[in-house]
Simulated assay, not measured.
Amino acid sequence: MRIMRKIIFSPFYKVVMADFFMADQLTSQIPLLRHTEFAACYFMAGSFRAYPYETCTKNQQYKHLAYVISFLPYYWRAMQCLRRYLEEHDVNQLANAGKYVSAMVAAAVRLKYKATPTPFWVWMVLITSTGTTVYQLYWDFVKDWGFFTPKSKNLWLRDDLILKNKFTYYVSMMLNLVLRLSWTKSVMKISITKNETRLLDFSRASLEIIRRGHWNFYRYLKLV
């Protein structure tokens, strides 16, 4: 709870490893945070006793608030990077903050496209989300995991590998790539039922937790 307080009030607290590590986990919990607002509406307000399931899901006020909540992890993480830049004068922290700002921009454009599905906004989604994805993949592989080391004896990896089976690293990289591209669902006209949509969202959220677990593992290995 102390760490969460420091995250919420970023950038007013000094940032240590536990703070930015926890904030990184929150960026993978956005589906959960987005549904927290719905859960509060549905259960705490007693809607489930007198109203159908769609009472909260169709309420535009709750939908907008849910998206605002889902932006917070990116904002907090960007503010942490800004605080570290001011203290450490490390330009990499500014670049890292840019990654989270670009994610916020891409998410905002996808939200606009959902409300106004015109060809212009389709292109805007493709441009902003593709740029953000490339940014994130570079940071994951090169900055956070330490892969793609020049002249490494291990193709696309680094020299000092903890795991003997290199295939594990490549699987993690492919999983990371595929899940970073999950935003493409927002521009694909797929005809599926409401229950199938919920199942797909649940599956994507679960796989994101697995992706974050892989990220945590390689991030830790780089630190040690």
Results as ranks from 00 to 15, higher is better:
Tyr53Pro: 01
Leu72Pro: 01
Trp76Lys: 00
Arg180Ala: 14
Tyr53Asp: 05
Met104Ala: 13
Lys143Thr: 09
Asp160Trp: 07
Ile209Thr: 10
Tyr218Thr: 02
Tyr135Gly: 05
Ser129Asp: 01
Arg158Gly: 02
Lys143Asp: 09
Lys14Asp: 11
Asp159Ser: 06
Arg77Gln: 09
Asp144Cys: 10
Leu33Ala: 04
Ser191Asp: 14
Tyr62Leu: 15
Lys114Ile: 09
Pro31Thr: 03
Thr193Trp: 05
Val171Phe: 14
Ile210Glu: 02
Thr130Asp: 03
Leu72Val: 03
Leu65Cys: 09
Cys81Gln: 05
Trp76Gln: 02
Lys143Met: 11
Thr193Leu: 04
Asp160Gln: 10
Met173Trp: 04
Phe20Ala: 04
Val224Phe: 15
Ile7His: 05
Ile127Asp: 02
Glu54Pro: 00
Leu199Asp: 02
Val134Asn: 03
Ile192Ala: 05
Arg198Val: 13
Leu177His: 02
Val15Thr: 07
Glu87Thr: 06
Ile190Met: 06
Leu32Cys: 04
Trp139Thr: 07
Ser70Gln: 09
Arg219Thr: 12
Arg204Leu: 15
Ile3His: 06
Val187Arg: 00
Tyr113Met: 00
Gln80Asn: 04
Phe20Asp: 05
Ile8Tyr: 08
Leu179Trp: 12
Tyr62Thr: 07
Tyr53Lys: 06
Tyr135Ala: 08
Leu175Ala: 10
Leu163Ser: 07
Asn165Met: 06
Glu208Arg: 04
Gly146Pro: 01
Tyr53Asn: 03
Tyr51Thr: 05
Thr133Asn: 08
Asn154Ser: 07
Thr27Arg: 07
Lys114Phe: 13
Asn216Pro: 03
Val105Lys: 03
Val125Trp: 06
Ile190Gly: 00
Met79Asp: 02
Thr184Lys: 01
Val68Cys: 12
Thr130Pro: 02
Leu32Gln: 01
Ile209Asn: 06
Thr133Glu: 09
Phe21Gly: 08
Cys41Ser: 05
His89Phe: 14
Val187Ala: 01
Asp24Met: 09
Leu177Ile: 12
Val171Lys: 08
Leu161Thr: 01
Phe120Leu: 14
Gln29Lys: 11
Leu179Asn: 07
Lys153Tyr: 09
Leu207Ser: 04
Thr116Gly: 08
Ser152Gly: 03
Tyr220Arg: 07
Val178Glu: 03
Ile8Leu: 13
Asn96Ile: 11
Arg5Ala: 15
Ser186Ile: 11
Thr197Lys: 11
Ser70Gly: 12
Gly98Ala: 06
Pro31Met: 08
Trp123Asn: 07
Tyr42Phe: 14
Pro11Phe: 11
Met17Ser: 15
Lys6Trp: 08
Leu177Asp: 02
Arg158Leu: 04
Leu26Cys: 03
Glu208Cys: 10
Val101Gln: 04
Ala18Ser: 14
Asp90His: 11
Thr130Leu: 13
Gln80Glu: 08
Lys164Gly: 13
Arg34Trp: 14
Gln136Tyr: 11
Pro11Ala: 09
Ala40Tyr: 13
Leu161Ile: 02
Asp201Phe: 12
Trp156Ser: 04
Gly213Glu: 02
Gln25Lys: 10
Trp76Ser: 02
Met174Leu: 15
